[in-house]
C-alpha cells in the first residue's frame, strides 16, 4: 500500500471522528450508518467488477440471504446474532460457489445472467415464503440487537462507530489485496485475459474467489441491516437494489476502492436527503449510469479531477496535458 492510501486512510479516520460532532440530528448519523452498510457491499462489488471485469446483477440476493438468515436464526431458532451471521455468510459463500463455478469458467457475461436469476429467486422465495419462515411479503419483526464486546448497539451513534470500524478494517484488507500479487493477477485479468493465462494466472479461480469475497461482504452487510433495522421484508432486496449497488460502484469508479466508498456515500446521502431520488430511484440510477459511462467512464471523482487537472494545466500552458490525467488516474 502506497503513501497515498495511508494518507487517505488517515484522512478518512479523522473525518469519521469529527463528523458525528458536527451533526446534531441522529437521523443524519443514521444516513451515514447506511453509507457504511452499503459501502461494505460496494467495496466487494468494486473488486469483482473493476478487477475481474464481470458484472453481478444479484448482489441484492446476497444481502437478502444475510439479512433473512440472520433474522430467521435469531428469532425462530434461538441463535445469538454472531453465530447466525457466520451461518449466513457460509450459506452465501456456498450459493455464490454454486452460481459462480460453472459460469465464471465461460467467456462472456454468463455470470450476469446467472446472478440475475439468483437475485430473482431469492426475492420471490422471500415473498412467497414456501417454508413458512420469511413472513411473506410483509416480512417479520423482532430481530435482536447486535452486541460487540458486551456493548449493545442500541443507538445510531454506536452503530455509526461500529459499522465504519468494520468498513475501515475491510478497506485496509482489500487495499492490501489490490496492492499485492493477488491484486496484480486480478488487474491482469482485466488488462487482458489471454496474456494473464499465459503468465500462469488461474483466471477462473481468481474470478471465483473474488466473487465469493464479494458475496461474503454482501451477506455481512445484509446481516448488519437486519440487526440495525430489526425488521426484514423482501421489498428492499429486489433487482432495483442490485442495480442501485452497481450504480454506486460505477459512480465512484470501478477500479478504485476509494471510489466505491465515495460513490456509495454520495448516492446514499442524495437518496436519503432528497425524497425525489427515493421516489424516482430506478429512473435516476439508469440516468446516472448512462451519464457516467458516457462522460466519466473512470468514475465521477477521478473523471472530474482529470477534467479539472486538464483545465488547470491548459491555463498554465506550461504543463504537459497528459500528465495531470495520468497522475489523477494513478490513485487507488
Amino acid at each position: 500500500m502506497g503513501k497515498k492510501n495511508l494518507f487517505g486512510l488517515a484522512s478518512l479516520v479523522v473525518v469519521l471522528l469529527v463528523v458525528p460532532h458536527l451533526l446534531g440530528n441522529p437521523y443524519y448519523l443514521g444516513v451515514l450508518v447506511w453509507c457504511g452498510i452499503y459501502g461494505l457491499v460496494c467495496m466487494g462489488l468494486s473488486l469483482f467488477m473493476g478487477y475481474c471485469g464481470q458484472i453481478s446483477l444479484g448482489h441484492a440476493g446476497f444481502c437478502a440471504l444475510g439479512a433473512y438468515i440472520s433474522g430467521i436464526l435469531t428469532t425462530r431458532f434461538g441463535f445469538s446474532p454472531w453465530p447466525a451471521l457466520g451461518v449466513a455468510m457460509l450459506a452465501s459463500l456456498l450459493v455464490a460457489f454454486v452460481v459462480g463455478l460453472p459460469t465464471l469458467r465461460l467467456k462472456g457475461h454468463y455470470l450476469a445472467m446467472a446472478t440475475l436469476g439468483f437475485g430473482m429467486i431469492i426475492f420471490v422465495a422471500a415473498g412467497g415464503d414456501p417454508f413458512g419462515l420469511t413472513g411473506g411479503p410483509s416480512g417479520f419483526w423482532g430481530i435482536p440487537k447486535l452486541s460487540v464486546f458486551g456493548v449493545v448497539l442500541d443507538s445510531e451513534v454506536k452503530w455509526y462507530y461500529f459499522v465504519w470500524a468494520v468498513v475501515l478494517v475491510c478497506l485496509v484488507a482489500l487495499l492490501n489485496i489490490v496492492h499485492s500479487r493477488v491484486g496484480r493477477a486480478l488487474r491482469s485479468i482485466h488488462g487482458g485475459e489471454p496474456a494473464a493465462k499465459a503468465m500462469g494466472v488461474h483466471t477462473a479461480r481468481y474470478k471465483t474467489q473474488t466473487f465469493l469475497l464479494s458475496a461474503a461482504l454482501g451477506s455481512l452487510a445484509g446481516s448488519f441491516y437486519a440487526h440495525y433495522v430489526g425488521f426484514v421484508n423482501p421489498h428492499p432486496f429486489g433487482l432495483n437494489f442490485s442495480i442501485h449497488l452497481l450504480t454506486m460502484v460505477v459512480v465512484g469508479g470501478m477500479t478504485n476502492l476509494w471510489g466505491a466508498i465515495a460513490g456509495t456515500a454520495l448516492l446514499t446521502i442524495l437518496t436519503r436527503y432528497f425524497r425525489v431520488f427515493m421516489d424516482w430511484g430506478v429512473f435516476f440510477d439508469g440516468f446516472i449510469l448512462v451519464i457516467i459511462m458516457l462522460v466519466f467512464p473512470e468514475g465521477l471523482f477521478v473523471g472530474a479531477a482529470r477534467r479539472l487537472g486538464g483545465f488547470v494545466s491548459r491555463k498554465r500552458s506550461t504543463g504537459v496535458p497528459g500528465q495531470a490525467s495520468r497522475q489523477a488516474a494513478g490513485g487507488g
Partner: peptide, 14 residues
Amino acid sequence: QLFANMTVRENVMV
C-alpha cells in the same frame, strides 16, 4: 497483449 492498466515493471511482475 501487454496489460495497459499497469506500469512496465508491474507487467513483468505479473
